[in-house]
Structure formats: C-alpha cells, structure tokens
Amino acid sequence: MDFKRIQWIFLLIFVAIDVFLGLQWYQGIQFNTVDTVGSTSVLKEMQGDDISFKKPSNKVGEGFYIAGQYSQAFMSQAGIMLKGTSTTYDNDTGTLTAELSINKRFKLNLDNPQRTLDHFIREPENVFHGQDYVYSEELSRMTRHQIVYVQVVPSGKIYDNSGEVHFNIDSDGYVSSYTQTYVSSPKILREKTPTISEEKALTWLYQYNQIPNNTTILWTKLAYTKLLDVNDTTVYVPTWFFGLRTNNNEEIHVKRINAFTGTIIKDTPQKVNINK
C-alpha cells in the first residue's frame, strides 16, 4: 500500500512538472515567431483605436534610388510641339502650365475620367511626352476639380509633384487646362534593393503616432517620392504612401514612409550643395 501511495505522489509531482515544462516549451515557440506576433499585436491595437484598414501584405518589395533632373530645354521644346494651347513655364518650380483653347476643351465623365484622358494625353500635340504618364485614381480623388496623371520611371511610378500632370476641370465639367512637371533622364543610382513590407510600414507609421484614432486608411501605394536635391539633380526613393481620412472629416491626408529605411519622409526635401 505504501508503494502505491508513493506512486500517487510521484504521479502528481510529474503532472506538475509536465505542466511547467509544457508552458516553458510553449513560450519558447512563441518567442520564435515574435516578429509576426509583434506586427499582429500592433494591428490589433490599431483596430482598438478605431483605425480601419485592409489587411496589409507582409511581402517585401524591391526598388531603386533614382536620380532625375528638371530640364528647362525640354520644357521650352514643349511649347513648339503642342497645338491649340497657350503655355507658360515657371522656371523656379519647373512647371509648365497649358491653357486649352476653347474648341480644344472637352467634357469629362468624372466617374471614369481615364477613358477619355488616356487618349488625349498620348497625343504628342496635346501633352509633351504624354505617353510617360499614367492615371492615378488615388491622387485624383484628393481634390474634386483635378485629375492626376503620374510619370512612370524604371520599376515604378513617381508620386511627387515633380513628375505629374494635373488636369483642371472647370465648373461645367470641361477640361480647361493642365499643369505638367517632368523628370528627365531618370537614372538608377544603386542596384535593386529590398524594401520593407506594407505591414511593417503601416505598423511603424502608427507607432510614430502618425495615425490618429478614428481613421480610415483608404489606400496604400508603393511609389517614388523626392528625397533630396543635390545641386540641380533630385534623388527619388521608394516610399509607402497611405491615404488617411479621419472619420469626422472629408479631407484626405497622405502620409509617407521611406520604404528603404522606414523613416517618415519630410514635406520639404533636404537640400545639398556640392562644389565640384
């Protein structure tokens, strides 16, 4: 009988040991996947703050550093090529403004503006190098009277006011004028490099306190933005864009995260002058 009792005591002790070891082991496994758990818990926390978003992808992307220039000579050519427009060129901002003559204006279906504009922009007599631009639904939704086309560069699009065409719509729904900026001869500065994933970018943006409570994330996009100006060249970097709208406000805000380093991109790019 005594032996039986010892067996019982042993049984109970070993059950306790098993529970303890089991917990230890489970925690070990948990630690192994700490990275994903980390992101997931941040995403949960965001939902707790009434931030709504589509499930972000955790796949890493790839991109380049790209250098480009404003070309004044380029824009002065534009004036000769275009027909039925009167153009002005602002040297400081590198912006060409083209006013369409009355008979060149056309009405636009604002639900699907790209159907008409895609044809218009491709004609060299309408927009200079227009075939380098594509329609951006996200940016076009930012303001009601503008349709935005963005410039395509190697392996991506430029979401920056230095490579865009903005079509202005008058009160009758006609396209009356446009402004154009152009990045000429974009060059790759460094080999293709991995970027951070959408999930990382989104959770970091939240951790930097850049997403207020009660916000809807309308869209996410990986595109190029201006990082710095060096002499007369501009360096562009792959960037995660997030279109945010606070729920009691109509306005859409765009937040940007550098997709190589994960830092916030400032509104005014850094300027560097090198004496060569």
């Binding site: 070993f14 098993d18 070891l21 089991g22 630690f31 192994n32």
Partner: peptide, 29 residues
C-alpha cells in the same frame, strides 16, 4: 493504471525537456 500513467507522465516530461533543450529559441531568448 497507476504505474502506466506514471510511466506516461515521466515520458512526457522527458520529451518536453528534450524539446526545450534542442530548441535554439531558448538560448536566443
């Protein structure tokens, strides 16, 4: 029943011990 379950729990504890020792995550932790 009693000896069998005793053997069983001892085996489980050994298995866990082995798992913990071989899992590198514990060192990293």
């Amino acid at each position: 029943m009693l000896p069998t379950s005793l053997v069983l729990v001892i085996a489980i504890s050994l298995a866990f011990t082995w798992l913990i020792w071989t899992n590198p995550a514990h060192f990293n932790k």
